[in-house]
Amino acid sequence: MIPRPISDELTIFLLKPLSGEESKAISKRFPMVFEDPDFGLKPSKLDGYMQRQAKDMGVLKAVNTTEDVLITAQLKIMDVAPPLVDLYARFSAPGGGEAEELIKVSVEAALRQWGRAFLHVTKLRGQAVISRVEHKSEFILSDPEVFAPGKEARELLFTDRFLSAMLKEAKQDATLAQRDGLVTAAKQSSIQRPRQHTRRVAVKRPTFVPFRTHRPALGAARGRGLGRLAQCGRGHGRAQNTFTQRQRLQHYGVGGRLQFFAKNWKRVTDDPWVLGTVSEGLKIDFISNPT
């Protein structure tokens, strides 16, 4: 049974805000020096790979803004640790009695709950970054095995193991997409197109020529039965337009002419990654030299 005076104190703790100076004063009363020099209580840093990706996609400012908000919350959660760790270390010393062991169990439970809250904010940071930079890899966050344990996980938000898993998934998706494209192309080539009955005429159709040189080509083709087409103003205009449209489609190709229609993509999406890929192409940023 928790006494009423303690309930009154808890009410004050929950409703009365603690100033930053008061929080710093409490932490200074419990200085922590760890025997392991590699261990430290601080938020993990954003990996350099993710920072470069966010910068290339133009979302680095939004990522940093979200990071600042979540890291501030994480630092406030970390302020709970010094007095709890101090108490836990005192009652973990050998030679304690039954009462000391009970106190140790209570403090250990508090530290585990503290770690749960700290990890929750870390996961929120990872989801916020992935949703803006690599949203297709967001499902990988649910697998704890893709994060490297130990010091690397404390220092980096994603770790090299996670980045390797993300690149592996991207490579598999690209391979499957390429395979599906080949299968689709094979199916389309196997379809027999129905024969269209056309009326044969004596005049041959002009041979397709580049749009910049079709006028001399037509003029040179007069001896092949195309003189009337070249001399007729109205007929020559229709041929010119037809050749120009066909030539543009063939000249630029499918991939090459995509950038010429980048402005039309702005009508259907405002995603900076999509617009940047259409207009500038896709840049693959490897974390190491590929084999």
Rank of each mutant, 00 (worst) to 15 (best):
S106D: 13
S27F: 02
F158A: 06
P43R: 03
K168T: 10
P31H: 09
R132F: 01
L60G: 02
R215T: 13
Q196L: 12
T65W: 03
R4S: 10
D79T: 05
A99L: 12
R195G: 07
E21W: 08
V107F: 05
R238I: 08
V254S: 09
M57Q: 14
V274L: 10
A148T: 14
S189G: 01
F34W: 13
A177Y: 01
F286H: 10
I12Q: 04
A117W: 03
I77F: 12
V129E: 00
H214V: 09
R4P: 03
Q196A: 05
R52G: 06
A174R: 14
F211S: 12
G281E: 02
P37K: 04
A54E: 11
K266Q: 08
D270E: 13
T66I: 10
T269Q: 09
A239N: 15
K283A: 02
L163G: 00
P94C: 00
P37A: 01
R246F: 07
P272F: 05
P94Y: 01
C232H: 09
K16E: 13
L282N: 07
G235R: 06
K266D: 00
P43Q: 06
F158H: 05
D143P: 06
P272E: 06
A230F: 10
L124P: 02
I284C: 04
R205K: 15
P272W: 12
P94Q: 05
P3E: 13
L218T: 00
G181T: 02
S106C: 10
E280H: 14
S190F: 12
L229P: 00
L226H: 09
P5D: 01
E169P: 00
S142D: 15
E145A: 12
P83L: 07
S164Q: 05
R52Q: 08
S106W: 09
E169V: 05
R132H: 10
M50L: 11
V203T: 14
L249W: 11
E98R: 10
P216V: 04
S106N: 10
F30W: 06
Q53M: 07
K168A: 10
A202L: 14
G150C: 07
P272Q: 01
K168G: 11
M1A: 13
I140F: 10
A230G: 00
R224L: 13
R267K: 14
E101M: 01
N264I: 07
G255Q: 01
V107K: 00
I26D: 02
A185S: 11
A165C: 09
D38A: 15
M78V: 07
R267I: 03
Q51Y: 05
V254Y: 08
A148N: 03
A262I: 05
V254P: 08
V278G: 06
I130C: 06
L176V: 14
K28H: 11
L15W: 04
L84D: 02
L182V: 15
T66Y: 06
F118I: 07
E152H: 03
K168Y: 08
K24H: 01
T291Q: 13
A221D: 08
